[in-house]
Design a protein around this nucleic acid. Sequence first.
DNA 1: GCAAACTCCTAACTGTGTTAGGCGAAACGA
DNA 2: TCGTTTCGCCTAACACAGTTAGGAGTTTGC
Lengths: 203, 203
Amino acid sequence: MLGETKRDRKAERRSETRREIVDAAWRLAHDKGLAQVTLRDVAESVGMRAPSLYTHFKSKNDIYDAMFGDAWNQYQEYEAAARASEPKNSRAAMRHYARVYFDFAVAFPARHQLMSLRTVPDFTPSEAAYASSVAAMEHFAARMRQHGVDGQDDLDLFVAIVDGLVTAQLANDPGGERWSRLLDRAIDMFADNLGITSEGSPP
Amino acid sequence: MLGETKRDRKAERRSETRREIVDAAWRLAHDKGLAQVTLRDVAESVGMRAPSLYTHFKSKNDIYDAMFGDAWNQYQEYEAAARASEPKNSRAAMRHYARVYFDFAVAFPARHQLMSLRTVPDFTPSEAAYASSVAAMEHFAARMRQHGVDGQDDLDLFVAIVDGLVTAQLANDPGGERWSRLLDRAIDMFADNLGITSEGSPP
DNA sequence: GCAAACTCCTAACTGTGTTAGGCGAAACGA
DNA sequence: TCGTTTCGCCTAACACAGTTAGGAGTTTGC
């Protein structure tokens, strides 16, 4: 049974190279900003010339697309790691979800820009990459259902509020905490509105 | 006393041309998106060649800068026009402020993108243009003070929430009302949090 | 009425994403 | 093992963006 699942070295190398390219792009985006990433710089980072990137991606937006999916996967890992400290109490849990998302977003502005803002000209995530985003969102929805929150309206509102705070923080006080400090209060407002008391746990 | 305030025809023509250019840029931004505006297209719209724009603006970002200031001036006019229907009741007034801002933003996505999102690569508004934004914000703050809301935290939170809803609406359901419908509820949450009752009027 | 300033032009440069086409090495079937 | 195909990279070059240089015709101002 050895040949059954023989390693496809070619495919392995190929996806390894894609990983390298995406990582290089992340590094550049982190250092110089998302829009300042040029294919020539990315190529140089991995020891190539710009046109060679087209062997692995069909366009620059295709690289953004890979980054988009990657970012949401990163978030799911990050969220999973933070799950150990997730409180039982419903209100505290919501604060937790919001804080985890907020911290993740603020830690890497270029990444958040790609994930949430439709800000890169002409870029729209592919079906495949979007799936990662949907999966993360669906996971969040499931958590919220455990706390008795199951309306789409409620989720929309929650996400919009948290994202609003993230965006304000990044746009007007990057590295600070002027809006970060308001997060718990915003979530409390939300919880109050839903009638979720400070003592309540999942029903 | 005729020469005292003699018209400066040159300056008039100059600022008239600037107006024309900015208007043309708005038109293109409206039709094709902010990032798709090219100097060659703008120039053609006003019967010029691209380099000639540099007679009136020192760079493309300088045009964006003029648009930024213009947008906030537009908002102040829009807000002033809506003032006739501003309710006395505090909670209703806050709903009004939020709705006016929301509708203005959603009516012209490219404009909102320029006003609120730091989304145009390398563009940061000048001191002068930023002043228009600050003026609008200060006006809003004054209104809120009349309703007993005077903390910077409160204003920050209010603006972040409304902007979060606007951004979500534009990004995920442009032209729809999935987040628009949540606006009043969000403001009620906020008002509840501040202890502003449905009956309360300015103190 | 003439010099200066102004406003527009064409030509061209730089830097970007992208395409065309080629070349050497690796992979693979006989 | 050998010939052929495929792969992964290259150089050259294109299209299009913002921008600069420099000039020509008009307007302005003493």
